[in-house]
Design a protein around this nucleic acid. Structure first.
Lengths: 246, 246
DNA sequence: TCGGAAAAATTGGTCAACCAATTTTATAAA
DNA sequence: TTTATAAAATTGGTTGACCAATTTTTCCGA
């Protein structure tokens, strides 16, 4: 990951400049060198610098003002966008355990017949995938997303989607994906899902909350087992305790 | 928010193209029109289109390949970024009630002495701000964020930060901000925060969870009151029920 | 007819020049 | 000296031309 040829030029320049902001003691509101200054200094055209500035502006580092110059943005936004995007699997599971069990409990009070039908269809897709030995990652995701959608709260849906995106972007998860989706486990996840659906169908809030918690606890324990093999890849990913059972 | 003059040109173009991807039935892997095609079609220079493409590439919509063209990226990321970004205040509060009360309950089991000290300092900032009649929005945000940080789970911190960002970007909230931060209410929020802190200090999980729930319930009820004046601005923002008390 | 090399076309990448908004400086009137 | 105004310099905004990588087409030999 040190020198990626496929990386676009403006990205390299943007990273260079970002580091410069971080390391050269620029404070929010400070004036940043102009596009021309940097282009001359680096011996490249202003267009390239301009493209890099756009990246920095999008990422919240810079505030570009026509006729005036570019200024380092407020610290708040920087810390927000700079923050790490590669989360460990245990952190992610812990967050899901907390959020999704609450959502399941709430969804039990708002779920409609239609939601239940769609959940049942998704479960059927999972079952068939296991039968055929094909991939069912999307069905898994779909199942959890449908529960969030049953709350009829788009913020909650966005939160759950975000968790799955974080998982997909997790460098650690990529290595675990194949192992955790081993056939021997998948029937267990399917059973878990069936229990959750049953609780939702009975509109039993406590049972739904607990079923979701238990499901993610099972995944967590399995992950822990898999990582106990002595895999050095897990270095840096602290063991994270489960949230208490609801 | 219909036509912002201060918006940079490339952003407008990027949004136009993003809508085009979303609405014109582009599927992942589909070839997107070339920079030249779009520049001619829109009657602008290719550089502008190029800058917009960079935005779309960063946001995960496009995959740009030199000599070949630009292609619509994987569906996963798109759905995340295309989804609406303007949430209603009741939806947001409902989500916060669900997530933050769970977090508060969990944080009670993981909180350190240092966290409590920082929470106390933030509370003091809020108190002084009320005394001086100055703005204390940041202290409010800080208080809730510190609780998330006490869980030592960066995913949860990111989730809470995301909720505050959504709130700041909420067009509806902008109108309500001044009213809800009226002095007469602010002392109440301060009291709520003090109760939460007390529960956390005693490491009482149930009490912390309930205190956070009650705090956000109070905000919700106040908001409901304010909106009951017959404000037509609330059209389109459905009334959203509270989540059940934990 | 097929395969592969060469040539042409297409595409994104880079550049230097010019335009327009803003800020700074110079100037003159009060 | 102060202040209002205009000119100049500075800055980001936009454009068209040219460069380089990739893809497509052409064409020749087996």
């Amino acid at each position: 990951m040190t020198s990626d040829d496929s990386k676009r030029r403006y990205q390299e320049i943007a990273e260079l400049l970002a580091r410069r902001i971080a390391e050269e003691g620029y404070k929010p509101g400070d004036k940043f060198p102009t596009e021309r200054q940097i282009s001359m200094e680096m011996g490249i055209s202003r267009s390239l610098v301009r493209e890099a500035f756009i990246v920095l502006e999008i990422e919240g580092y810079l505030d570009v003002r026509k006729g005036s110059g570019s200024y380092v943005a407020d610290g708040e936004k920087i810390s927000l966008n700079v923050q790490k995007s590669d989360f460990g699997p245990f952190e992610l599971l812990q967050a899901r355990q907390l959020l999704e069990s609450s959502i399941a409990g709430f969804a039990a009070t708002t779920i409609t017949k239609n939601d239940i039908i769609r959940l049942r269809e998704t479960l059927e897709l999972e079952r068939k995938a296991i039968e055929n030995g094909t991939e069912d990652y999307l069905a898994d995701r779909q199942f959890h997303l449908l529960i969030a959608e049953a709350t009829q709260n788009s913020v909650l849906v966005a939160q759950v989607e975000d968790l799955w995106t974080k998982r997909e972007n997790s460098s650690m998860w990529a290595r675990l994906h194949d192992r955790i989706f081993d056939l021997s486990y998948r029937t267990r996840w399917l059973d878990d899902h069936a229990i959750i659906l049953e609780a939702l169908r009975h509109r039993d809030s406590d049972r739904a909350r607990h079923a979701m918690w238990q499901h993610l606890e099972n995944v967590r324990l399995t992950l822990l087992e898999l990582s106990d093999v002595g895999d050095p890849e897990f270095d840096g990913y602290l063991y994270t305790p489960a949230v208490a059972s609801p």
